[in-house]
Every structure is written in structure tokens, then in C-alpha cells.
Design a protein around this nucleic acid. Structure first.
Lengths: 140, 140
DNA sequence: ATCTATAGCCTACGGGTGTAGGCGAAGTCA
DNA sequence: TGACTTCGCCTACACCCGTAGGCTATAGAT
């Protein structure tokens, strides 16, 4: 239950997102270690990663703590917070508020354990109970 | 049931998306009518809309038919196709690490009609049927 | 005390995007 | 048959983004 009311989380580009993911996955890291931790294969130069880190800092998505002559970079917001912001924006921008398509796609495509499936079904059942009777129609 | 196998649909920016939406919603339109049909309040100049239409044409997302001295613009791909592509890209870009929390949050917080809820439950039920017995654990 | 590898800082450059303006051709009204 | 209006085409410009390189200070190695 992360609190509601996160309004202006910084918005990060997609390369930046890859970088900040390494921080979410590995905790605070020096630039060099971020570089090392990135999934090999994207082919970025170290300098590129540095630039991305700096931009993330400039945007307030990442901060750092000086350790010796270098920085330990750390994600300011949780993955959950940032992801939710992105999802919300996406749902509004592309899906016109209709979250059904993305939900359906996620359900179809994700590996979900039986437990997880059960949890989601429980959530849906509860929601249905609470909402019986409201109709919502979007054109075409 | 949109067919699978749409690979390289053009990718449109978010302003462009708003424009092409008016074409999906209203069928082929002249630039002027696109402008008029846009939800009032975004504050674009007519020229801006023209630019966006031209860019959409350049990208192959929109084409036109000349009628008199002006064009009737028309979306080349269906909303469904384009939306699908966007959802796919988004899910890959942002949600690859942590889709479960997002699923849960979306289900809890979004408005879903009863029909939609039923659809999702159906999807989950089917998935559960297919996956019974496999255990899949993803880290954190 | 020097030298060198590395850190962070600042700069770059080409393409995309938001947001238009200018211009010449063509249709419309008087 | 002019005077406007409107079209589409081309251009602009600042900012973001992907993708780095150069410069300078400093931490370690010798």
C-alpha cells in the first residue's frame, strides 16, 4: 500500500529507465557498477551511462552520496511508484483511460504463479461485488 | 481478434496520437475538420495540427486522398492495431521487471465495468487452467 | 613526488517533438 | 477579374534523447 498522492514524479526516458532499473535491482551503485550491472548487449559506452545517470540526477529521479571521489547513485523513488506513474500516463495517453487492454495483455502474457492468479481473481471478485450495476461504454 | 503479426507499424508521438484519434473516431477528414474535431482545450493552432498530420503522413500512419484542392486524411491502421503495438512496447519497456504489482494496482484502482471484470476473470480462469502445476518464481 | 587511471563536469551533434510562421497556389465571393 | 481565404509545402526553433568525447582534478601506485 504505497500512499496515494504522488503527483509529479520525474518522467524518465527509456534509456534512463534501463539505467534506473539497475539501481532498483541492485541498490545504490557507483557509476562503474551501474555500467557493469547493465544487461550486457545494449552496447552503451561507459560515458553514455554516465550521461544517463547525470540526467536522472538532474531530473530528481536519482540522487547520490559521495564516497571517496565518486558517487553512490540511488533511485529516489521506488520502482513501484515510478512504474505506476508510467502506467497511469500510458493508460491515459493511449488507452483513453481504458485499462482493460493492458490488463488483458498482461494477464495473457505474464508468467503468473497459481497463487498470483488466485490473488488476482480474488481482487476481481471483490471488485465485482463492489461495483455491480454500473455500466461503462466506450465508443468503438 | 486482430491478427497477430503486425510488426513495424509506425510509432507516433503523443501529440500525433491525439490527432490520429480524431481520424479513428470520425473517419477520413480534411485538416480543418480534424482541427475542429479535436477536443477543445488542448490549445493547438491550426498550423500545429497540420504539422502533426504531415508528420503522420511521413511516418505512414496516415494517408490521404486529394479532394479538390485539399486532402482527406485517413488513418492507415486501425486503432486496435496501433494500440496493440503501443501496449506491447510499453509492457516491454516498463513492465518487464514487475508486472504483478501493477496488475494488482490497476485492478484495484481503475474503473472497470462489470463486463470487463468478467472478461478478466475469464482470462485468469483460463490461464489458471493451463498453468496448473507449473511453479514459476521471479525474484522480488 | 610523479605518473596514470578514473571520476565527475561540460560540451556536442543529429534526430524526434511540441509548437508554430511564411509563402505561393488555388478556390470563393463580389 | 480582383480580393480574400484557405490549402498544402517548407522552414524554424528550442528542448528532449541517444550516444558519446574532451577536460580537469584527484586517488592510487611506484
Amino acid at each position: 500500500m504505497t500512499s496515494h498522492k504522488e503527483e509529479s514524479l520525474p518522467s524518465v526516458s527509456s534509456a534512463e529507465w534501463e539505467v534506473i532499473e539497475t539501481l532498483w535491482d541492485n541498490g545504490p551503485l557507483a557509476a562503474r557498477d551501474v555500467f557493469a550491472a547493465l544487461p550486457a548487449g545494449h552496447g552503451w559506452a561507459y560515458k553514455t551511462v554516465k550521461t544517463l545517470l547525470s540526467r536522472l540526477v538532474a531530473k530528481g529521479a536519482v540522487d547520490y552520496q559521495q564516497v571517496g571521489n565518486s558517487y553512490l547513485y540511488r533511485a529516489v523513488y521506488s520502482r513501484d511508484q515510478m512504474t505506476h506513474k508510467e502506467v497511469k500516463g500510458f493508460v491515459e495517453r493511449v488507452l483513453d483511460g481504458a485499462s482493460l487492454p493492458i490488463l488483458a495483455r498482461l494477464i495473457e502474457r505474464e508468467d503468473l504463479s497459481d497463487d498470483q492468479i488466485a490473488d488476482l481473481r480474488r481482487l476481481l471478485a471483490e471488485k465485482e461485488r463492489k461495483s455491480l450495476g454500473k455500466e461503462e461504454r466506450r465508443p468503438r
